[in-house]
C-alpha cells in the first residue's frame, strides 16, 4: 500500500501533466452547446467527420431564407423616370434577391451571392457602374492615367539629401509613379445620371443594421429561356491565436431558381427556406491563418 506522501506526489505529477498538455473538448459537445468559435477551429484541425458535423450544424442554424423577384417597372420609374425605366428594362432584367439568416455566436458571419445562367449567353452581375453602363446605354468614363511623386522612394531620396546637406542632389533623380485607374466618382455621376440614381436608390446590397436581413440587386441578362442558379456562400469566422489570425469556413450552397417567369409562383409573397428550395452543398473550404 503506497504511503500518503507518495500518493500526493503521484496526484501532483498527474495534475501537472494534465495542466501542461490540456484536455481537448469533444467536437460533438461544442456543436451541441453552440460553441461555434471553437467548433470552426476544431473542424479545421480535424478530419472529414468533424468537418461534416460542424458544417452541417452551422448550415442548419444559419436557417437561410431567400426570395427572388424582379424590380417592377413602376418602382424603377419612380427612381429614374418612366422613359429611362422603359429603356433599362428593355435591355436587362433588374432582380432583387432578399436573404435572411440567424445570428450565430461567431466573430464574423457574411453571405455572398453569385448568380449563373445555364448557358453562356445568360449572365448576371451585381449592380455596379459597369453593368449599369450596359443596362442604361450610358457612356462609362474611360480609365485615367494618374501620377504622383509622393512615393516612399522619393521620401528616402529627400532624407538622403537632408542628411548629406544637399550633396546628394546632383546624383539624385526623383521618380514619378504612374498608374491607370477609374475616373473619379463625380465624373461617373455626371456621365451616367440614370446609373447613379439607381445605385443611390438600390445599391448592390442593403442590410438591416444587424446584417441579418439583406437585399441584393442584380442585373440579369434578359433571356426568357435561361434557367438560373444562385450560389450562396456563407463565411463563418472565428478569431484565433496568434492575434490577427482566424479559422474560416466557406460553405456554399446552390439553389436552382428556374426561369424568370416562374419566380412569382415559386416564391410568392414570402421568403423560402433554402432547403425548401432544394439547396445542396457544392463546396466547403476551411482555412486557418491570416485572412
Amino acid at each position: 500500500m503506497p504511503r500518503p506522501g507518495r500518493r500526493l506526489v503521484g496526484f501532483a505529477l498527474c495534475g501537472a501533466l494534465v495542466g501542461a498538455v490540456g484536455c481537448a473538448p469533444r467536437v460533438a459537445t461544442l456543436v451541441q452547446h453552440k460553441h461555434y468559435r471553437e467548433a470552426v477551429c476544431a473542424a479545421h484541425d480535424g478530419g472529414p467527420t468533424r468537418r461534416r458535423l460542424v458544417a452541417g450544424a452551422l448550415a442548419g442554424d444559419t436557417e437561410l431564407y431567400l426570395h427572388v423577384a424582379p424590380v417592377e417597372r413602376d418602382e424603377l420609374a419612380g427612381i429614374v423616370g418612366a422613359a429611362a425605366a422603359e429603356r433599362v428594362l428593355e435591355r436587362v432584367q433588374l432582380v432583387r434577391i432578399t436573404t435572411r439568416k440567424n445570428a450565430l455566436p461567431l466573430d464574423d458571419f457574411a453571405l455572398t451571392l453569385t448568380v449563373k445562367g445555364d448557358n453562356d449567353a445568360a449572365a448576371a452581375a451585381p449592380l455596379g457602374w459597369q453593368v449599369l453602363g450596359v443596362a442604361t446605354g450610358e457612356k462609362i468614363p474611360a480609365q485615367r492615367e494618374y501620377e504622383t511623386r509622393a512615393t516612399i522612394g522619393n521620401l528616402l531620396r529627400v532624407a538622403g539629401a537632408v542628411l548629406t546637406a544637399g550633396a546628394s542632389l546632383p546624383f539624385t533623380r526623383f521618380k514619378t509613379r504612374r498608374w491607370t485607374g477609374d475616373a473619379p466618382r463625380s465624373e461617373y455621376e455626371r456621365n451616367m445620371p440614370i446609373a447613379a440614381a439607381m445605385l443611390d436608390a438600390l445599391g448592390p446590397v442593403r442590410c438591416d443594421p444587424d446584417r441579418l436581413r439583406c437585399t441584393f440587386h442584380f442585373v440579369f441578362d434578359r433571356s426568357p429561356d435561361a434557367r438560373w442558379w444562385l450560389d450562396a456562400q456563407a463565411t463563418y469566422v472565428a478569431e484565433s491565436e496568434p492575434a490577427g489570425e482566424s479559422c474560416r469556413l466557406e460553405h456554399t450552397v446552390r439553389v436552382g431558381l428556374g426561369r424568370a417567369d416562374e419566380w412569382g409562383e415559386r416564391f410568392g409573397p414570402r421568403m423560402r427556406r433554402s432547403d425548401e428550395l432544394g439547396a445542396r452543398t457544392i463546396a466547403t473550404a476551411w482555412q486557418r491563418g491570416e485572412p
Binding site: 431564407y65 423577384a69 440567424n102 451585381p126 466618382r185 441579418l212 421568403m271
Partner: peptide
C-alpha cells in the same frame, strides 16, 4: 468596376426591405 462599386455582392450596412419572413433568431 467603377468608383464605389462593389466588386462582389457582400453584405454591408444600409436598409433592407422585402417579403414576409419569420424574424431571425439569435443562436
Amino acid at each position: 468596376g467603377g468608383p464605389g462599386a462593389a466588386p462582389a455582392p457582400a453584405e454591408g450596412p444600409g436598409e433592407a426591405q422585402g417579403p414576409a419572413v419569420p424574424p431571425p433568431r439569435t443562436i
